[in-house]
Design a protein around this nucleic acid. Structure first.
Lengths: 328, 328
DNA sequence: CCGGCGCCTGCTCATATGAGCAAAGAATGC
DNA sequence: GCATTCTTTGCTCATATGAGCAGGCGCCGG
């Protein structure tokens, strides 16, 4: 008899959702009382037979956001719907749009915003509307100026975000990674650089992305690393990079020597920030996303549905290293 | 401003459908009146942003059924949901199940039911429950006994359907297709055969399927035709067979000579029937389905979603040759 | 065979939602 | 600049739906 109830609930659901009949009408069609129909419908929902989906490029997955916040200890999360999106560029674009929306709606409005650079950030800048905020100053938090074509976009990302908010951009006039430690120390002690780093360290909020550890990384693309360097890092456990620094699944620096030669905000500073927004999309970045979220590098994550599910399923991949920041 | 309304309607839909908030609550979250929220929700639905799907192997597509009935002039249609079903066997099985359900619910219960045979019908027989009806006699409407292994199932299909209804089966003791016209005429004049054909002609209802015109057909499988025969027929416009008779897209006999040698109910008798139920599933049978429905061979069609859409989109593929039977 | 227990049914009542309408606002033409 | 028309807004009222409860039914142990 329980099986016939299931079937009935399906018949009722068809009439209710597809034919827009009232429960009462369904009752007379199926010779049931209207309360029974209501119960069948509730049952169909509870059994998961009714699937409601919002199909729109800007649609979000609120329940996933909540679960992400709860299981990963984030203060906030934005998860965009990605059913039927197979093109990674389209996915990235949608997530970037969502990040732009998040920034725009962010209250209180940060006076200074620290940003990294890369394809994703560029995309976010593109999606921000003119006047998205008033007087927000932007400061780069990792090096990358003037090494090649790609570096140009690093500057333009920052400038574009700042301009659209009527603020101004402060660029970090330094390569991302230097060949010798001494050079790095020298450049860091230079007033022009250290002032920017100080500004970056005092930003009200950070916005950054992460790169997958593969040869397609912007760091390779920009000439800071070779494909061989990256595969070496991968062999040592690297899952990706954040503000130019390669981390393993636990969020720890993979190659301290390399890290020493990398100019920019330290991961500790990022972890200590009150508000740091990570924007990470795509299957290729599932591993980095895990590391970033699991090691507390961000307080807010903007991502796609699949990545969110991955993060939730692969639970807190790090034991308990979070906790400095409150769990809503 | 119309764009911001669209976005708002998506936000509202997320809160309404994913978070189960009341329109009033959504109103206070988005600082909108509750009526505005209601309108946004209605708008989101109207724009097709809200997709409600019933996920269940027995789920049907009522709106498609209606459209199918209306555009194709059927008295009834059953369309089963097939989203995410890629396995053709699974599809066939679900449609067969639906046909079995339809038969079971059919009122008035037919005293005699004429049936064809084949993989699909076999599947329908399998899905019928014991006691699906009381005292329904079953009669085969086309030949096919005792030529090979496959023929055995033809008999068992009929017997099974009859047994489960507590009635008895009458088999047509003849091959489906004979090699010589004289033999066919001789066998048809035999009392044992003609009596069955008379019974078949007087059945209250018919249940049949259709085969695609390819080498995988049961007629080839059973040895009545060779793969070459079939490709010859295809060259002459055949799209598939119904009760052993090959038809073209317009529902006309492709090879009158062959048809003359085929034993069983004529297509005219089928077209004249008050109740004839076709069970056709799968992409391979889209073309036959069109021919069957377009030429009025059935009054009721049981099929899958994709086939239904195909039929509706390829409109009445025949000019106006329907009309003998009332259009609801 | 009977009483107790728990589930299911059909109800009342409270709440949520949709239809229809009058007024406000925006857009247009004069 | 003003009147007209069309759209949008906030409402009232009717309807649809869900919560919660009392009675009835079957199931089980005694």
């Amino acid at each position: 008899m329980i099986e016939s109830d299931e079937l009935l609930s399906i018949r009722a659901a068809e009439l209710y959702y597809e034919e827009d009949k009232t429960q009462d009408e369904i009752g007379s069609i199926l010779t049931l009382t209207r309360w029974k129909v209501g119960r069948l419908l509730a049952q169909a929902k509870a059994n998961g037979f009714i699937r409601i989906e919002i199909v729109h490029p800007r649609a979000r997955r609120l329940p996933l956001e909540r679960r992400l916040r709860e299981t990963c200890g984030l203060t906030d999360a934005v998860v965009i719907s990605a059913t039927g999106v197979d093109d990674p560029d389209e996915l990235q674009s949608r997530v970037a749009q969502a990040a732009a929306d998040y920034l725009t709606a962010l209250r209180p409005v940060p006076r200074t915003l620290g940003i990294s650079w890369g394809r994703t950030l560029d995309d976010v800048a593109l999606h921000l509307r003119d006047g998205w905020a008033r007087d927000v100053d932007v400061v780069q938090i990792n090096g990358g100026v003037s090494l090649n074509r790609r570096a140009g976009t690093a500057a333009s990302t920052a400038v574009s975000i700042a301009q659209k908010a009527g603020g101004h951009a402060t660029l970090l006039p330094s390569p991302a990674i230097l060949e010798r430690l001494e050079t790095k120390q020298a450049i860091e002690s230079d007033r022009a650089v250290s002032a920017v780093l100080d500004l970056a360290a005092g930003a009200d909020a950070y916005l950054f992305s992460a790169g997958a550890a593969d040869a397609g990384s912007v760091l390779v693309d920009s000439g800071y690393l070779t494909a061989e360097d990256v595969s070496g890092l991968v062999r040592r456990g690297a899952v990706g990079d954040v503000v130019g620094r390669y981390i393993d699944a636990a969020g720890a620096i993979v190659d301290p020597g390399l890290d020493e030669r990398t100019v920019g905000l330290s991961l500790e500073s990022l972890r200590a920030a009150r508000l740091s927004i990570a924007v990470i999309a795509g299957a290729a970045k599932h591993a980095v996303a895990s590391a970033v979220v699991g090691s507390g590098l961000c307080t807010v994550l903007v991502t796609d549905e699949e990545t969110a599910v991955h993060l939730i399923e692969h639970h807190p991949p790090v034991q308990d290293s979070e906790g400095q920041r409150g769990t809503a």
